[in-house]
Amino acid sequence: MHANTDIPTVAIVFGGDSSEHQISCLTAASVARAIDPERFRVVGIGITRSGRWVHVPVEEIRELQVEDKVLPSLSEDRLEAILHRGPDGAELVIRDGDRLIDPVRVDVALALLHGPFGEDGTIQGLFEMQGVRYVGSGVAASAIGMDKHFMKLVFSAQGLPIGPYVAISPREWETDRAAALDAVASLHFPVYVKPARGGSSMGISRVERAEDVEVAVERARDFDPKVLVEQGFVDCREIECGVLGALDGGWAAASVPAEIRMHTEDAFYDFEAKYLPDEQVSLDVPADILPDVADRVRAMAVKAFHALDGEGLARVDFFVDRTGEIWINEINTMPGFTALSMFPRMWEHSGLDYPQLITRLIELALTRPLGLR
């Protein structure tokens, strides 16, 4: 029998077979604890490291947490979850042996997946084909936002200021490595070598000397065969800004900006600093910047969001120098979303607390049409 409920059912989809599996589990737990039970019914779809879709009761999602600096992950010994397109819309069923049980209509999917196969347009395409409304950007915007090379091409075409960089494709690295290294050597050091389509700062290296670039590229290629090398911004502040789509389909809104401050001069905001900080970093919300700089950051964040045809939410990251000049670093179409992450904290200081923010995102998903838009 179908579950009888008068409130929308939200499927939290989390985990995944990317390197950011554990971060996704943390995010799902935080959202599951905060979502308004009087407004939404929640069902859980976990994706294990092997790529299996499994049923995870919402009560278990809420219990996922960091223990002794070990991040949570999903076990494989769970019943399979199947999302399919039924005659009355999208439906979630559980496979128990040779039986399909407990069908539930899904009104909105909230994919709290980071990295490849989560925020890169792949699962968004699956939702489109299944006729499921979902939180966040569509296929093209997600894919472009995930690929830092294509993202920079779009931003540059829209007149947004970006820093010098070199993109290294698998073909270029494998057929003419010397030319790729020469191109990187033309940048001013330090440089940052990173997977072109990675997230959560996995596989990123700060490189001070040209002779160390090759090793850093190989490390980044452990996460993505396509690599981006960005010229470092020296003596600049790292400023972030949250963006939310509009319920009426109009221009998006920007939050107050925030600042990331590393406690040592040569450090950068890597995986450990983000998720196992141990006093490595301070997150200042709002950022202590001049009103004019804040206004320009907010306007630029909205422009970047619409340049990609973004939907729902995004976090846009910037560098700001001592004179107030601004460069856009990147956009994240599914930013970190635990209660302590920058995106929710920026919106809390802008008037939307964490549960309200989750409600707004689901409402945005419910109002958008299926198919091309």
Rank of each mutant, 00 (worst) to 15 (best):
Gly51Asn: 06
Arg52Asn: 15
Val106Thr: 10
Gln65Lys: 12
Ile82Tyr: 04
Gly86His: 09
Val104Ser: 03
Arg41Lys: 14
Arg85Pro: 10
Val58Arg: 00
Pro103Leu: 10
Trp53Ala: 07
Val31Ile: 02
Ile101Gln: 13
Asp88Thr: 14
Pro103Gly: 03
Asp96Tyr: 13
Asp36Ala: 09
Asp88Ile: 08
Leu110Ala: 09
Val54Met: 05
Leu112Asp: 01
Ile61Cys: 03
Arg95Cys: 05
Leu71Glu: 03
Pro72Ile: 00
Glu80Cys: 03
Glu38Asn: 09
Glu60Lys: 02
Asp36Val: 01
His114Ile: 04
Gly97Glu: 04
Ser73Asn: 11
Ser73Ile: 08
Ala109Pro: 10
Leu110Lys: 04
Pro37Asp: 07
Ile101Gly: 06
Ala32Met: 08
Cys25His: 00
Asp107Lys: 10
Glu59Gln: 10
Pro116Leu: 10
Arg33Trp: 09
Leu74Asn: 11
Arg105Phe: 10
Ile35Arg: 05
Pro57Glu: 02
Gly86Met: 09
Gly44Leu: 02
Ala28Glu: 02
Asp68Thr: 07
Gln65His: 11
Leu74Cys: 03
Leu79Asn: 12
Asp96Ser: 15
Ser73Gly: 07
Val104Gln: 11
Pro72Asp: 10
Arg99Tyr: 13
Arg62Ala: 02
Leu79Ala: 14
Leu110Val: 02
Glu67Ser: 15
Asp68Met: 05
Asp96Glu: 15
Gly44Pro: 01
Ala29Ser: 13
Glu76Ser: 12
Arg41Leu: 13
Leu74His: 01
Phe40Ala: 09
